[in-house]
Amino acid sequence: MEFLNTFINGLSVGGVYAMIALGYTMVYGIAKMLNFAHGDIIMVGAYMIVLFLPINPIVAIIAAIVLCALLGIFIEKIAYKPLRGASPLAVLITAIGVSYLLQSLAQAIAGPTTYHPNPLEKLFPKFMGEPTYGIIKIGAFQIKLSTLITLICVALVMIGLTLFVKKTKIGRAMVAVSEDKGAAQLMGINVNNIIMITFAIGSSLAALASVLTTFESASVETTMGSLPGIKAFTAAVIGGIGSIPGAMIGGIILGLVECFAQAFPRIAPYTVAIEFSLLIIVLLVKPTGILGKKRREKV
């Protein structure tokens, strides 16, 4: 039972990482850049929930996702598009700059207060209150409503995204752009539009991740996106950056490692160290990540 509990916790934690990692990996696959401001989109999404929750929980969730998608497009247009073709280092530094800009703006606007919004409590006030507290019990097995929703959301997103990439015109255009930007352009694909759509999808997934975190009453503060962002990046690299199923697998692995490490009191304090050691091991053994493609370098 303990094992099953930890396993489910791991899946739900990992699912959220996977969702953020998808944003990293898609942007990397298509624009060939590491968008380090991606983690801070989570933070912006969470603040949107804080802002709109008093109106209505559904409105808050939709607003968070839509506004973050728009923010993603805006950042891409303002900060990254002018650097298309610049050295990767310049783009990377710009991304880090955007990350700090978002954090500082949030600090300036929202102040130092830590918020604990929970849309789930507003959506299901009865079920989240006494005596159930949002726990679903089936015999000896129990699962939190928030965990269940997270697992369902993650599964839906993964299936949806896979179908989107494989079956739709835009999805296939994305694959084409990631394979060969020049050739895709010659075939009549508007590369700029595809990159914009990628940023929009990535950012809305980050916003969805922030919605799922607020379901657990997480603390909303200006630096809340940094660590999940870095962990999701790690997940993307473990899975093989650029690969969509890779990001999913990487995220889940990281979540499971995190929860199982915390289940042992002796090693629990070193959870984060263990997670990042995993990254180092993967990079040493299989530098392209679990599902990463090997690129043949022509000399």
């Binding site: 939190k144 657990e216 997480a218 603390s219 809340m224 660590l227 999940p228 959870t271 984060v272």
Partner: peptide
């Protein structure tokens, strides 16, 4: 730890 202070599910 400071790095894992956002969720205590486990």
């Amino acid at each position: 730890t400071e790095a894992t202070k956002s969720s205590f599910t486990q």
